[in-house]
């Protein structure tokens, strides 16, 4: 894992979030694809030009304080409970590694939700436009009714944020738990049915979309952030002129944090512009 460490000014951070981005960043296309690729690029450019101001309203993201994170994995489980994800579908795992040699040794870890990249590689590859980045808030979601389950987006995500729903169930599915609705399932908070979407779909973290869309105010933190034992996961609007107020912990200013603290984003070199920052 390569990490770029850098400290940026407030202006830089804001610019980067609000700045217009060329969609013609794909390098390494063979001659066969260049012609093909240019067409939609032009289209995208055009749409960018016309809609910049009205569409880019919010850019929701997370600032995760690794000084606080204790590797309890409450976020992982809270997400499962909130979204009723099946076995093997985990929107926010905690990644861990050990470095050093006894007695100079450390275990390092970080929770890894979807980064809701500003330049998401996953949405571009979808053959049926089933996954996309919402213009209004930058949340990357999958339309389960459209996804054909080809899993191309899983391969395209550099961060392992996408999971295929194989239709597996927890043993509890046979109990009353199977009648507990999930906010994600087809038809407002429906039940999980065999062979029906999202079974056979690719699934991912949505920043708890149902909570965000509930009143359109983005006043509720995603489940991982809410439950976090050390309050390490800050969620909020990184594009807000008011300074990226964190909806999780009232009074906490995300942009201020990004200026005051050192931070990294993962695989920055890919140009994906993750919307999840890790404070070091």
């Amino acid at each position: 894992m390569e990490k770029l460490e850098r400290q940026e000014t407030l202006e830089n951070v804001i610019d980067r979030q609000l700045g217009k981005r060329s969609f013609l960043k794909l390098a390494g296309l063979g001659i066969f694809t260049a012609a093909v690729a240019s067409l939609p690029s032009i289209l995208s450019e055009a749409s960018e030009e016309t809609g910049t101001n009205t569409k880019r309203k919010f850019r929701y993201g997370m600032v995760i304080d690794l000084k606080r994170c204790v590797n309890c994995k409450a976020c992982t489980v809270a997400c499962k409970l909130e979204n009723k994800t099946p076995p093997g579908v985990v929107y926010n795992p905690v990644i861990e590694e050990e470095i050093g040699e006894f007695p100079y040794v450390q275990r390092r870890w970080f929770p890894k939700p979807c980064f809701h990249c500003d330049n998401p590689p996953c949405t571009k590859v979808c053959p049926v436009t089933a996954t996309y980045k919402r213009e209004k808030d930058g949340i990357v979601i999958v339309d389960y009714d459209a996804c054909i389950g080809c899993r191309y987006c899983i391969t395209a995500c550099p961060y392992g944020a996408r999971y295929f729903d194989f239709g597996e169930n927890y043993p509890a599915q046979q109990t009353e738990y199977g009648r507990v609705p999930s906010p994600e399932f087809h038809g407002a908070h429906g039940l999980r049915r065999e062979g029906k979407s999202p079974v056979g779909n690719v699934r991912k973290c949505t920043f708890c979309l149902h909570l965000q869309d509930e009143n359109g105010n983005y006043t509720r933190p995603p489940a991982c952030s809410e439950t976090c034992m050390s309050k390490a996961i800050h969620f909020g609007d990184l594009a807000s002129q008011a300074g990226g107020l964190c909806v999780t912990h009232e009074g906490c200013n995300l942009k201020q944090l990004l200026v005051e603290r050192k931070w990294i984003r993962l695989k920055e070199e890919l140009g994906t512009e993750p919307m999840v920052y890790y404070l070091l």
């Binding site: 409450a74 489980v77 499962k80 409970l81 927890y170 439950t227 050390s230 309050k231 999780t248």
Partner: peptide, 17 residues
Amino acid sequence: EGAVMCPKGNAGIMALY
């Protein structure tokens, strides 16, 4: 800030069911 819960607490539903 809001209170917190540990992973086990979040998994209580699986103990019940």
